[in-house]
Amino acid sequence: MTARPVLDFHVRLAPRPGAGERLLSAMDDSGLDRAVVCAGGTIDLDRLARQLVEGGHVETDADNDTVLKTCADTDGRLVPFFFANPHRPSDEYRSRAAEFRGLEISPAVHGIGLADPRVEELVGVAAEFGHPVYVVCLSRPGAGVADLVGVARRFPQVNFVLGHSGIGNIDFHALTLIRDEPNIVLETSGGYTCVAEAAVSRLGAGRVVFGSEYPLQHPAVELAKFQVLRLPPEQWRQIAWDNAHRLLGEEQQ
């Protein structure tokens, strides 16, 4: 098992009975100390898979209430992020931002491009509250990694997290696009081991964070990706722990 401590920067919590207990059990089994939690279950997986290929969107609200309630009883072990619906006014996020630690925006789910004024309003609220912004990009006009770079340049005070190793599992091009953007870090779930290795080499260990995308991927699988890389302990510490705490505005622990 990869050395502890580990903060998983991306897990999901669906609004189903026992989901919180199952998450904590999986974390215990995998040796995860903490996790950033975003709402899951916003869209049926079959529909999501079709949207990824054909386009489309839903206007469904994520269950941020369940995320907040589940995280509240864990003494900081679970860290809640607000999954925004850009089809709603940004005031909803602003009114609750103090309860959460970060923001997620997903064109894959809600279908709104990253340069859309509604998305930029949400990022503006994140800037007010010092929240990092987790983004899932797509190979689609307005939702690509280059579009994320554009937003990051307009909001240099905001830290962005590019989810799932970019687009697909071998997105070396994403590494090139974000290389000179210091306020974008890469979260590594989904990508091949070669992409994780290249991210550490090209971006530096200080701009990479570990994530699993639990429950769609078991944390042990993503941990194994780094275990075979045999990174120096100081680099793994950055990726697994220090960088995440910096993004959350916490002192390194």
Rank of each mutant, 00 (worst) to 15 (best):
M1C: 10
H10S: 10
V11G: 00
R12G: 05
A14F: 13
P15H: 07
P17Y: 07
G18D: 12
A19W: 15
R22H: 13
D29I: 03
D29P: 00
S30Y: 06
L32H: 02
R34D: 04
V36A: 07
A39E: 07
A39S: 14
T42M: 05
D46F: 11
L48S: 01
R50I: 04
R50M: 07
G56P: 03
H57L: 01
E59V: 03
V67D: 06
L68P: 03
K69M: 09
K69F: 09
C71M: 05
D73K: 14
D73Q: 15
T74D: 05
T74V: 10
F81C: 06
N85F: 04
P86R: 00
R88I: 09
E92K: 02
A97F: 01
I105C: 12
P107W: 11
P107M: 08
A108E: 08
V109G: 02
H110N: 04
G111D: 08
G111H: 10
A115C: 11
D116C: 08
P117V: 13
L122V: 01
L122Y: 03
G124E: 06
E128L: 01
F129C: 01
H131R: 12
L138Q: 15
G142K: 11
A143G: 13
A143E: 12
A152W: 00
V158F: 05
V158D: 06
N159M: 06
G163E: 12
H164K: 05
S165P: 03
G166C: 00
I167R: 02
L175I: 13
L177I: 10
E181L: 07
P182R: 14
N183E: 09
N183K: 08
E187C: 08
S189C: 14
S201T: 13
L203K: 09
A205E: 15
G206Q: 13
R207L: 02
P215N: 02
H218P: 05
A220D: 14
A220G: 13
Q227I: 03
Q227A: 15
R230V: 06
E234A: 15
Q238M: 15
I239P: 08
N243H: 11
H245E: 15
R246I: 05
E250H: 12
